[in-house]
Amino acid sequence: MKLGLALGYWGAGPPPGTVEKVDAAEDLGFDSMWTAEAYGSDAFTPLSWLGSRTTRMRLGTSVVQMSARTPTATAMAAMTLDHLSGGRMVLGIGASGPQVVEGWYGQPYPRPLARTREYVRVLRDTIAREKVGSDGPHYPIPYPGGTGLGKPLRSTLHPYRTDLPILLAAEGPKNVALAAEIADGWQPLFYAPRHDAHYRESLDAGFAARGGRPDGFEVVCMVQVVVDDVVEAAADRIRPFLALYIGGMGAKGANFHYEVFARMGYDDECARIQELYLGGDKDAAAKAVPTSMVEQVALIGPKAKIAEELPVFRDSLVTTMVVDGSPEQLRTVRELVDG
């Protein structure tokens, strides 16, 4: 199992200590680093800026919002960064949810599966330096009903490699199956290795539709690791994050993160967390997150406990475990993973 560095997206501004984290991860032999975006900082700019300090780590997005850019614009950015990094770019994309897509990007959300399939097809054609044309309803190229002067174009930029990896962020069963069918990897969020039977079924269905599992298919997953002699204290550092996603990252009845934990058997707990969070009591929502829920998706507690639980992730679907922390914490994770 490889290690990746989670850089995520920013809050009010660039988080302090990021440069030190990147330098430490490179020195510690981490395989990759990953940026994200929602409705603030973008994914490509920090990845380029911080990636310029590295010579070995792969540079990944976790994830680029599809609705933020046309597929050709996303392909341009990925191809450019692949050249600048000497072939280290990994493009992770995701459909996001209706609140962000419609409320921030001003784009329609319906039919995310069909949109994703069409988006990836255009990405592949652009990166392969084909003449790009699409008659799909979501990303028609050339644009119909315009001046009539548009025509299919081929990228002036020759790709550093035509097989630049495309990973798909997915949580629902149909989206996971789509990742296995059309992408080079899957990026889960809140993956619980003890409750992954439905993920395995979805991946198998996608691979069957594809005609078999491709070599090198990746599963890149963020796993929070908090070392603390007191388990509850470690859990307390993660509870607000889970409460935010279960309670606030999506509307009632349309929250994919909520559904992930509900499928683990925490339906009642999720309902309570969401009720408190949407009611404005974020502290109570965090306190309502049970420790057992945290332990399904994170590694928390004393070093000995984490070392004992690590094989569950090592033997799971995960090929790259993406972690965050200070340089000292990254070093500790490296030591734990190495055994």
Rank of each mutant, 00 (worst) to 15 (best):
P15K: 03
P159T: 02
D283N: 13
G86R: 05
I246C: 07
L167I: 05
H83Q: 11
D204R: 12
G133E: 15
F261T: 01
T291I: 09
A243I: 02
A114N: 08
K252M: 14
A197D: 14
P137S: 13
G11H: 03
A284F: 12
L47F: 06
M57A: 09
Y160F: 15
S52H: 10
T45P: 09
M79V: 01
A197T: 11
Q329N: 14
T70P: 06
E201K: 12
P71C: 11
T55F: 05
T156R: 15
A233F: 06
W10L: 00
I166Y: 04
G11D: 08
T126Q: 13
V312P: 04
A128C: 11
L167N: 05
A114C: 06
I246V: 15
K305Y: 06
K21D: 07
A251R: 11
I238G: 06
V19F: 12
A75E: 03
P71A: 14
L50T: 03
R58M: 11
C270R: 00
D184Q: 05
A36Y: 04
T156M: 15
A286I: 02
L178V: 12
A12H: 07
P140K: 04
D315P: 02
E201C: 03
G211Q: 03
A128H: 14
G265Y: 06
M66Y: 12
I306W: 00
V19D: 14
G212C: 10
K252Y: 15
R154S: 12
F313L: 11
P144E: 09
T61P: 05
P290T: 07
D31W: 11
L203W: 01
G86I: 05
G150Y: 10
Y277C: 00
R237S: 14
L153Y: 10
L330T: 09
V100N: 06
P144I: 08
G11E: 11
V337M: 12
R200K: 14
M33E: 12
D184A: 10
R210K: 05
S48P: 00
K305V: 09
P159G: 06
F261N: 01
D163K: 03
Y245C: 03
S62D: 13
T74W: 04
A304F: 05
A73V: 08
G103F: 00
F261C: 04
E171R: 08
G29S: 09
R194Q: 05
R154N: 07
S316Q: 02
A304V: 13
Q65R: 13
W186Y: 08
T126G: 09
R56F: 06
V219G: 00
V176A: 07
Y9C: 01
G185M: 03
G146Q: 14
D268H: 10
V132C: 02
T61A: 13
A235C: 10
R194E: 11
P159I: 03
T61E: 14
D135L: 12
R334L: 07
A77E: 11
Q274L: 06
S326P: 04
